[in-house]
Design a protein around this nucleic acid. Structure first.
Length: 476
DNA sequence: ATGTCC
């Protein structure tokens, strides 16, 4: 990173002052080491997002950020519809409502050690993973519409999981305002056979062990103890979300001139929230969100069946499920007054602080659980949203370790099979349909997740609760 | 991320 453009606000916050076409400044949250290593393109992309119509307060960039399509991954940008604010397909990302769900298992590490290979093999057999993988059900037109409206609530009605799961999912598992009619026939067709599948890339299902507790009270509130086994699922809306992203990106790019929006970069394609196209995208995006929530709910149900066979005493219950590729309508305090905003979080997790009415009552005093998905060889983190974070970045935190090099470069440097063997020797069992995919996901192709989680805490975005180490990883 | 290029 060229540090000349940045003003240090403190050790963990760096401002790009408003200049040129920027309507607001941008603020990057990172340690000195993380920001020095960060790509200059993050800075350029954040500055261009800051020039979009109706943007409020500032563009915020998380410590795990890297450059993405239009908006940086790890970017947060909020818009006011009444001030000409826009919604951007590239500001949400292609994998709409990609997110992480963490479950308790009721097990401790000793329960797993004897059956670890059998558990890995069984999960790999039972959870469809990889590009183009198909699931256990095929949705007809009516079922598709019900799924896109109902999300995880629909999945529960179909027998995947129980109603007790729903309070621990963002929006109780069902996003309001989903519009299946705004989802193209093509997008629905792509999704017909893909419910209950992990997908590829950085998606995974992991059995993880809690190896460190940072805050006893918060850990207690979340039901997390040293030595616990947790299950984490990271995936999104598969072919449907991707198709919606592709189609609306094109439509928004074509329509921008009609809206009088100058695009410094075609990838910033957007539409006014108040315009029909903006509303149509939001309806389709929320439908894709429900698809992702239903997908994670079905995968949870598959995992429960697997655990019931391999480890019958396991009891899988939800800790929390939250997306990190979204645009949500939320109320935030701006200059001391509440405003309704459309908050884009692309590779950034919602991290609401204590007392927020949307949180399940058992977590309301602690704040929202925030999951940072690490790499298959390092750690993942559980954090809690803070009051300070609500004021710093519209209640947002980072979502992962963040890539440090391209997939192509990683695939050149590592062999998937060798990584599998090295990790197995360290007690981490990888199963995947694609060893090239595993090489692309090499732990060393990512930033240091410990540094990212620490930076998130020091920047005041969220508070660390627990560190988890993978034991079994099903990689897409 | 993605039927990894309609």
């Amino acid at each position: 990173m060229d540090m000349h453009r940045l003003e240090a606000l403190n050790d963990y916050s760096w401002r790009i002052p408003r200049q040129g076409a920027m309507r607001v400044p941008a603020v990057i949250f990172a340690s000195g080491a993380l920001i020095e290593a960060m790509d200059d393109k993050v800075c350029e992309q954040a500055s261009r997002v800051a020039a979009l119509p109706g943007i409020v307060e500032a563009v915020y960039v998380m410590p795990d950020a890297h450059w993405g399509y239009g908006f940086p991954i790890g970017g947060v940008a909020a818009f006011d519809a009444e001030a000409g604010g826009v919604v951007s397909a590239g500001g949400v990302g292609f994998d709409i409502s990609c997110g992480v769900r963490m479950l308790h298992t009721g097990l401790v590490a000793d329960d797993i050690l004897g059956v670890q290979p059998a558990l890995a093999d069984a999960l790999f057999r039972d959870i469809p993973a990889g590009v183009g993988s198909h699931g256990v059900l095929r949705l007809g037109a009516k079922a598709m519409e019900a799924m896109l409206r109902g999300g995880a609530r629909w999945a529960v009605e179909q027998g995947f999981g129980t109603p007790e799961d729903l309070p621990f999912i963002e929006e109780h598992g069902c996003l309001d305002g989903a519009d299946p009619a705004a989802v193209s026939v093509q997008a629905k067709r792509r999704q017909r056979d893909e419910m209950g599948t992990l997908g590829s890339g950085n998606h995974y299902l992991e059995v993880q062990r809690v190896v460190q507790i940072f805050d006893n009270d918060l850990a207690q509130a979340f039901g997390v103890h040293l030595g616990d086994i947790k299950l984490s699922i990271h995936c999104g809306s598969r072919g449907l979300g991707h198709q919606i992203g592709t189609e609306f990106l094109r439509r928004m790019a074509v329509a921008a001139a009609d809206f009088g929006i100058h695009l410094a970069d075609r990838e910033l394609a957007c539409a006014p929230i108040a315009a029909d196209l903006g509303q149509e995208y939001l309806g389709a995006m929320r439908a894709a969100g429900n698809c992702a929530l239903a997908n994670r709910q079905i995968i949870t149900s598959l995992a429960r069946e697997t655990f019931a066979r391999v480890l019958p005493k396991a009891r899988l219950s939800l800790l929390f499920d939250v997306s990190h590729n979204t645009c949500k309508r939320e109320t935030h305090s701006v200059d001391g007054r509440p405003r309704q905003l459309y908050v884009h979080r692309k590779g950034a997790t919602r991290a609401f602080g204590p007392g927020h009415p949307s949180l399940p009552p058992v977590y309301r005093a602690a704040g929202q659980p925030v999951m940072i998905g690490g790499t298959m060889g390092t750690a993942s983190y559980l954090l809690a949203g803070t009051v300070m974070g609500m004021a710093r970045a519209f209640g947002s935190a980072c979502h992962g370790a963040g890539r440090a090099m391209s997939r192509r470069q990683a695939a050149r440097l590592w062999s998937g099979e060798r990584l599998r063997d090295e990790l197995a020797a360290r007690g981490v069992l990888i199963r995947s349909p694609s060893w090239r995919g595993v090489a692309e996901e090499a732990p060393a192709a990512y930033k240091d997740v410990d540094a990212v989680a620490e930076a998130a805490e020091r920047a005041g975005l969220a508070q660390r609760v627990a560190r988890l180490q993978p034991m079994v990883c099903i990689k897409g």
